[in-house]
Write a protein that binds this DNA or RNA. Structure first.
Lengths: 180, 180
DNA sequence: ACCTGAACACCGTTCAAGT
DNA sequence: ACCTGAACACCGTTCAAGT
């Protein structure tokens, strides 16, 4: 039997860690525990090592993002859903990049590998909706699209965030029928 | 006036750090100091931070390697000098890679940037000697060659080191006249 | 002028004691 | 069954005291 406090602690730690790492990727484990209002032991029972916590934060983020697809498709056109979803993805990529040096190369690679599949699957779902409705060209490739979005978060957000405009250009290229 | 012990300490620290980092990239600063037979304070006066020490170890290594070019060219054919020199470079690359996770991405980038210029210059010197003597084709490019050697240290050295053989293939491509 | 090494403020991680 | 938080063995770095 899992106690309710145990169930809650995990997500509280995850939330605290996400905030803390966004502010400073070098935030210590004890600082995360304190921020979550939890003893150090509890933190370590949930996430036995620092790397495990960092990884979990990102898996959580990816699950949140990929899980949002069906909701976006429910009351929007596929192209608009794809646009909103991708902007969200770019935000997450920027947060990850903000961690920077706090992540070891090995950890960074582990994240990329565990993340790639689900993200491509989510894009595929969005693409399929558009292809079925005839708004997205049938030969559009999810892998290519993810590659292109990689260029979006590299685009500095100063003085204005160019990413939305760049995304619009990419989306224009995906349309089944060229814009008038 | 620089005391003789002060002059010696720097190179003793550098030597100890090179050995220690080769064995374990996570070797602590105090361990390096102890290994060098030096107080922690002396270590820190010479290298004010961990990253500074790691960087200095590599600069030292690069200077040693690039400095060996003229000696190699003195009593050998340019192609043979290039072959021996490149094998030495591959060894150094393998040592650097062995550090792995102990290096932050930023530090790793700093090393690459500070290293690229001198290494390309050394290759250019070796190439020029061969081009002048007619043994290396005139359109051979130092940057391309460095890029190719990057593939050599990635070649695992089990069960036998394939790098020398791969290098021979590359060198064959550089010859002014094809092999009979 | 330079060196040593104890000491400082931290770190990640563990585990006895509580509820 | 789960939690807390003091404690442990370390870390990078500093600095008073020595020579």
């Amino acid at each position: 039997m899992v106690r309710s406090d145990a169930r809650e602690n995990r997500s509280r730690i995850l939330a605290a860690a996400r905030e803390a790492f966004t502010e400073d990727g070098a935030t210590s484990m004890n600082q995360v525990a304190q921020r979550a209002g939890v003893g150090a032991g509890t933190l370590y029972r949930n996430f036995p090592t620092r790397e495990a916590l960092v990884l979990a934060v990102y898996q959580d983020e990816v699950e949140r993002i990929t899980g949002a697809v069906s909701g976006l498709l429910a009351d929007r056109s596929p192209l608009e859903a794809l646009r909103l979803w991708t902007l969200d993805l770019v935000e997450a990529m920027r947060r990850k990049h903000g961690l920077g040096d706090a992540l070891s190369p090995t950890a960074h690679q582990a994240i990329t590998e565990q993340t790639y599949g689900p993200v491509v699957a989510a894009i595929t779902d969005l693409f399929d909706a558009g292809k079925k409705g005839g708004s997205i060209r049938p030969d559009a490739d999810a892998g290519d699209f993810l590659q292109l979005t990689g260029a979006l978060w590299r685009a500095a957000s100063t003085p204005v965030d160019r990413a939305p405009h760049m995304l619009d250009l990419i989306l224009d290229g995906l349309r089944a029928t060229p814009r008038s």
